[in-house]
Each structure stands twice: as C-alpha cells, then as structure tokens.
Write a protein that binds this DNA or RNA. Structure first.
Lengths: 232, 232
DNA sequence: ACAAAAGTGTTCACGTTACACCCATGC
DNA sequence: GCATGGGTGTAACGTGAACACTTTTGT
C-alpha cells in the first residue's frame, strides 16, 4: 500500500542507473568502462551511469547516460537488477537500477562524451578494479548475458546486421567460453528458420567467401507466438 | 558516474517496494492482495508494499511490508523487476522495486496486519482489478514463477517440508497449467537425487498412504557446483 | 600449388514420451 | 468389496553429440 507522498515522513534514497555495456570485436567480448573524474573512487574505473531525473523513465535514464558518457546511441538495453545495499555509496543512500546493454563494435566505434574524462573497452578477464559495487553488477550482468544467450536470440545485437555463421558461432563461443561443433551448430540454428540467407557473400577475404545471413526478427516473433522457443 | 549527492541538483523520485506473494492450497495457486484504505484507488485491491526507508535494504523493505501488511514471516523472496514509468502513481513520481514471494499456505494461514483493512488470497483467473500498474507487476511475476519453476527448485517453497510426489506433481500442473505424466514425472525427479524419502507416510487418508519426501537443499547445492542443473 | 576458412551427413547414445495395470488402505 | 489414489516398466521415437573430408578463393 502506498501512503500519500504529501504526508510521507521518510527521507528518500537517491536513485541512479548503471549500465554494463558489452561489445564484441574480432578478438573477444569487451565491457565499456568510464574513468571517474571525481571522488569517491576518483580515477578508478566504473560503469557508466548517473541519477534518474523525475521526468524520465528508468530506461530513458539509462539511454541518456549511455549517450552522454559514451556517445552510444542505438543499443539493445534490458534491465538487470536493482542494487540497494545500504552502504554501496559511501556518501549517501543510493539505490541503483542496473542495466545491461549490447552493441556491435564494428558499426559503433566509441566516442567518449563530456561527462567522463576517459572511456574505454576492456576485455573481461581480468576486468580492472571497479568503483562502488560495480564488480557485483558486472558479474551479474555477465551471468545474465550468458544465460539469456542460450534461450533468447539476443546474440544478434552483438553482430552486424549481416553476418556469417562462423561469426555467429564465434560469438557464442566467446561469450559462453566453450567451443562448439561447427556442423551441429549450423544444423541447429538453420533448422530454427530465423536466419535468412542474403544474395550476398563476404568480400575481400583470402579464402572461400562465406554466405551472409540476417536474423529475421518478424519471423522469430511469429514462431514464438506458436510456442517456438529459441535454444542453443 | 555518480555526482556528489551533496551537490546533486535534481529532485528524487520516491522509492517503494511491491510484493507478489503466491501461495498454493489444495485447489490452486493464489495471490495475496490488500484492499486499499486510502485514495488513490481507495477500496481497490493492490499488492502489498510501501516506501523504502533510508536505513534498510530493498529486501528488508519487502520483508517488512509483508510482515506489516499480512503477518507473513518466513518466505522465499526474490527481486523481480523495477517499475519506473512516470505516471504509474498519479500523485508523485514513484519508482517501485517489485518482488515475488512464495509461501506454503498449509503452514502459514493468513493474518492481516495493521496497515491494511483487508487482505485475502485470490485465485489467478481472473485476478480482480488492481490499483496502479499492479496488474503488470502481477503478470510479470506469474511469468517469472512459471519460468523459474522449470529450471530451479523453487517449487518446494510452495509445499510443506514433507510432501508426496503427487503433491509435487500437482504443484507443477497447477502453476504451469498443463497435465504431466505421472510415471515420467516421478522417474525424472527421483533420478535427480535431490529428494530424500522419509521414514514416514501419509496419515489418515482413505487410500494407500503415500511416501513422504523432503527436498535436500544441501545435496542440490553440492550437485549444482558440479554443473548439475535442475530441470523439469 | 598452397593456405585458409567454408561447407556438408551419418552414426550412435541417450533422454523423452506414451501408455495400463496391480496394490494398499479406509470405509 | 469397493472406492480412492499410490506405485511401477518398457518400447518407440526424436534429439544431441561425435566426427573428416571436399570446395572455394586469394596469393
């Protein structure tokens, strides 16, 4: 039950969002971190994030902070968990709604925004020491990503719109940290009927050019309504 | 990045918790609702919940509200999602961290607390009209419960400590809304080795007394570390 | 011609599904 | 003795895992 805020007697915790932004490049999965300009944790690495304003939703706040601090615009974004330990910020009671986000590094090179003196992509092992409880947030985000990858088609967010099956397999291997069998992987993913082959192949490779595919989102939604579930 | 709250220029949203408490009785799965004493949504049904205090964590706030409004003490509680739409409360900007909770109705009969004029258990179809965006919260909670039930052993939270395989199967059928094959269900769950048969049988039933089991939490954790995953 | 990655099928083991009858107990 | 739910095995089927060679392209 919600008492009338006009008569609400308690002090309010502050409310922030923090974002774990994952990107995939040719080598491996990376996470975006910001170097803090101010205390506490001055000059330490931290997740991009900031205070939620009263006139924006949580999702909007997360997108705004990502834009302001990293210049990133079009990302897949999903709420992760809300962190409310009492002492997670040494200055004040701050509750933070954490998000994870996925982006394709080939199409979106990083440009640091104005809020941060530095921003950079870091490989996952090891992740540098992080401010606040950001390591816990990061760890939870990675676990969620690994989990969701298995039963929802979110991996495509980390790839360019047109991709090869080898790229897709590589993505799964890098994120899950285990090798997969090429033939079985292809059989399984193609049988799902959510990938459409394009009338186009790889260019400028010094080996046999691979078929390019795109993920058919509409087809996926259609199948999902009939009880189909993506699983790898 | 988190600016110093001392110099923080923005108004703070209010922060609440709301709980979707599920209980299972002999007939079906039920949800606990509170009748609101005050406007807005006066006399409508709502989820138990209330404001988060600065000196308590989110989990503590959820447990406190459950205790105050329903008298319930020992529950399985897990954070669900944080709702931050701007107009979800007509009076003020209120962000709410939603939880879902599971309880065994046989061991814990309801006693309404002081905060609510009425509280009651409702079957799920149909759920009555709810205040605020509580229907969305409820719907998400039910989906989460159904999803988690399949790959985590949380169902036992809805049963008494000692239960029969038929009770367990009934729980799965009621929550997932589909019939299961008795022999296959038993084979599968027993093969997991997380149920221990007790030296005890049902009493006072007018048919063959069933074997009682308990869930072996320690064994489950042990198996889980070796890569085992509960699945039904 | 050689290096490099693309592409392709079959076999086997295992897990999932479907299915029907006898047993113990209380009334 | 009858009504009620408890308890059990097997066969067919489908899915997942293991595994190696030929093709295409650029240099």
């Amino acid at each position: 039950m919600v008492p009338d805020p006009a008569t609400y007697p308690y002090a309010r915790p502050a409310l922030t969002v923090d974002c774990v932004l994952f990107g995939l490049d040719a080598e491996d999965l990376k996470v975006l971190l910001i170097r803090r300009k101010l205390p506490p944790f001055q000059d330490q690495w931290a997740l991009p994030g900031g205070f939620v304003r009263v006139a924006e939703t949580l999702d909007q706040a997360a997108l705004r902070e990502l834009r302001e601090e990293t210049g990133v615009e079009d990302v897949f974004l999903e709420q992760l968990y809300t962190f409310g330990e009492i002492d997670r910020d040494p200055r004040d009671r701050v509750v933070s709604v954490a998000y994870y986000a996925l982006i394709n590094l080939e199409d979106h090179p990083l440009e640091a925004g104005t809020d941060a003196s530095q921003a950079g992509w870091f490989p996952l092992d090891p992740v540098p020491a992080l401010a606040f409880d950001h390591r816990s947030i990061f760890t939870l985000a990675l676990g969620r990503l690994q989990g969701k990858l298995r039963y929802e088609p979110i991996g495509f967010e980390l790839l360019p719109a047109k991709f090869t099956l080898t790229q897709l397999q590589g993505l799964y291997e890098k994120v899950l940290g285990q090798p997969l069998d090429k033939r079985n992987f292809r059989k399984k993913i193609l049988k799902m009927n959510v990938l459409v082959p394009l009338a186009e192949k790889q260019q400028n490779v010094r080996h046999r050019a691979a078929q390019l595919y795109r993920f058919d989102e509409a087809r996926y939604q259609q199948l999902r309504e009939k009880g189909f579930s993506f699983e790898l």
